[in-house]
């Protein structure tokens, strides 16, 4: 029995080492980028005495960066709004009428999320050009709406299905109209799910690059601008911009995690 215990401990220790290595591999590259936005690199060695914030300063004079950020925010808000409305309508519908039709409907709305982004992006590009819709922020917003729809829908549907039917029946038995039940029972109970879905959708939209690349035309969002800068090489200025975006992403993730809640990570958090 002791040998068994020992084996178990050894296995867990091995897993701990693998996990630690994975975390190092996930975070080391990012820390390096952040570091190199403050310090200079010479022959592969970091010059620890070269601390400066000049590259952050340079960002402010970078032409087009402000516009790209503004565009990203516009697209983010527009697509979150559209996706939330659509996702809510879909969730109510699917919840009310389970069956083959809604199963197919679900499969279809999951496609833009599951398929390689290149296919979603290209199919919309071809579609819009066939209908003479010129590329720009509008087409990008549509693309992002479809991309984030599945996650928003899933988040809201899960909450909706979790609401007990008794709650609804109690409300109606007590004489509430359907509207009152919706307004005072359903809506408050769904608020958290909608906010979570909105934050998740915004985070996805803010970082989306591949679909955007095909639908953007000749303006920029932040990731597209970044992509163009990256092709030029590994520069301190890009490092500074990347660091800022990373800080924003991390803050957003923490906010989302707060909303989703500590207990939820165990059971209710679903992709």
């Amino acid at each position: 029995m002791n040998a068994l215990r020992l084996g178990q401990h050894a296995a867990m220790a091995a897993l701990a080492i693998v996990t630690a290595m994975v975390f190092v591999a996930l975070y080391a590259p990012i820390f390096l980028v952040a570091l190199l936005s403050f310090f200079r690199l010479r022959r592969g060695e970091i010059q620890w005495d070269s601390f400066s914030l000049q590259w952050y300063g340079k960002l402010f004079s970078n032409e087009g960066l402000g516009q790209a950020l503004a565009n990203s925010l516009i697209v983010g808000f527009a697509s979150v709004l559209m996706a939330l409305v659509l996702a809510t309508l879909l969730a109510f519908y699917v919840n009310a009428r389970p069956g083959l039709r809604t199963t197919i409907l679900q499969f279809v709305i999951f496609l833009p999320f599951l398929l390689p982004p290149i296919i979603t992006g290209l199919s919309l590009l071809v579609f819009f050009s066939e209908w003479g819709v010129s590329r720009g922020l509008f087409t990008v917003s549509i693309g992002h709406t479809l991309f984030v729809l599945a996650l928003a829908y899933r988040t809201i549907l899960t909450r909706l299905q979790g609401l007990s039917r008794n709650l609804m029946e109690a409300s109606q038995d007590l004489g509430a109209t359907r509207w009152q039940t919706f307004r005072y029972i359903l809506l408050p109970n769904l608020k958290l799910a909608v906010v979570t879905a909105g934050l998740l959708a915004f985070a996805l939209s803010f970082d989306e690059t591949m679909i955007t690349l095909f639908l953007i035309g000749d303006t920029n969002t932040l990731p597209i601008r970044l992509f163009a800068m990256m092709r030029a090489g590994f520069t301190p200025e890009v490092n500074a911009l990347v660091t800022l975006i990373l800080v924003f992403s991390i803050l957003l993730t923490l906010v989302i995690a707060r909303y989703v809640g500590r207990g939820a990570i165990g059971g209710r958090f679903r992709l």
Binding site: P29, L226, L246
Partner: peptide, 19 residues
């Protein structure tokens, strides 16, 4: 640690590649 996994999940894809 789970949070530490969600952070890179929501992190910009091209930033990850660049890093």
């Amino acid at each position: 640690l789970v949070l530490g996994l969600i952070v890179p999940l929501l992190m910009s894809y091209i930033i990850k590649i660049y890093a």
